[in-house]
């Protein structure tokens, strides 16, 4: 197990290097820079700014210097937000984003798994068709449609929940639901598919034959195998949640990292873009490794490979 984790972590290094390189040259190819202000600034000031933030040197010098600073966690100062480093931005805005992402995944699992399980225990009945149709709607409605609609209905018409900000627990509900509903729908469909397959297996029949209660059969014996597809879906889902949070943070004014990334991209602030891209990449790689570990824990067959 330890060897497996170490190998996966070592594999991640060239990947991260490739991501860093591609991102670096993509930003450098972009026209404009963070100093394109509307106000006219004297050339000498611009010169000094470029030198201070490290935009004046040759590409290769910039490439290696930034790389070194990222590896040593000595984050460069930001041209677009004077006085702060890209590390500060992550430190300050990482919390809300992660909270949003985790709450969304929690909502997705709490809604998706029971719905899918219920649908699979009574296939082709009302308990199957009704939730699965709703799931299809959930998949077809994009985040930026669900978000404003939820805000309109629950926030403005009914007045139950606040529609923007990030202060008390009530503020978390709408953003997390908006982000989580799509994945809830997907998870429900996958759980149903996986459970239907498992419930037809011999060992489930054996469990029933020895007189176990149906609840125990479904939740203890079948669910463990039935949610395997869901577990392997977590990797791609996390990548999706990260992208989705850009939109949700915009809709509900959440002070997370997504908006900073979009802003950094628009400002061509190379150090902030690089730091955020690397940060997201590490997050996703770590999550994928965790998913692999969970799979091994859930499925004994994989342990011997």
């Amino acid at each position: 197990m330890l060897r497996f984790i170490v190998i996966r972590l070592l594999q991640a290094i060239p990947v991260l290097l490739a991501i860093y390189t591609i991102t670096f040259f993509m930003i450098k190819a972009a026209p404009g820079g963070p100093f394109d202000a509307e106000r006219k600034v004297p050339e000498s000031v611009l010169e000094k700014q470029r030198a201070y933030y490290g935009y004046g040197d040759s590409l290769s010098t910039q490439y290696f210097r930034l790389l070194k600073r990222h590896i040593t966690f000595d984050f460069p100062p930001l041209a677009s937000v004077p006085g702060l480093t890209s590390g500060d931005i992550i430190k300050n805005h990482f919390g809300p984003s992660v909270q949003l992402g985790l709450l969304a995944m929690l909502a997705a699992v709490l809604i998706g798994v029971p719905t899918g399980t219920l649908a699979s225990t009574k296939p082709n009945s009302l308990f199957d068709y009704a939730p699965m149709s709703v799931a299809m709607i959930g998949i077809c409605l994009p985040t930026f449609v669900i978000g404003p609609l939820l805000a309109l209905v629950f926030g403005l018409w009914l007045g139950w929940l606040p529609v923007s900000g990030w202060f008390e627990w009530k503020d978390r509900i709408l953003p997390a639901l908006t982000l989580g509903l799509f994945y809830a729908a997907y998870i429900a469909r996958m759980t149903r598919g996986g459970m239907l397959e498992i419930l037809g297996m011999d060992y489930v029949r054996t469990a029933r034959a020895k007189g176990l209660k149906e609840l125990l059969v479904v939740f203890k014996h079948a669910l463990r195998g039935g949610i395997m597809p869901v577990v392997s879906f977590f990797g791609p889902a996390l990548a999706g949640v990260v992208s989705g949070s850009f939109v949700v943070e915009t809709i509900f004014q959440v002070p997370g990292m997504g908006r900073h990334f979009v802003q950094a991209a628009l400002n061509r602030d190379h150090s902030l873009i690089l730091t955020t891209v690397l940060f997201y990449a590490i997050l996703i790689i770590v999550a994928n490794i965790l998913v692999d570990i969970i799979q091994v824990i859930l499925n004994p067959k994989l342990r011997y490979q």
Binding site: P236, A239, V242, S243, F261, V277, Y280, A281, I284, N288
Partner: peptide, 8 residues
């Protein structure tokens, strides 16, 4: 590439 957030 699969594991990367496309949108970025």
């Amino acid at each position: 590439l699969y594991a990367l957030p496309f949108l970025i």
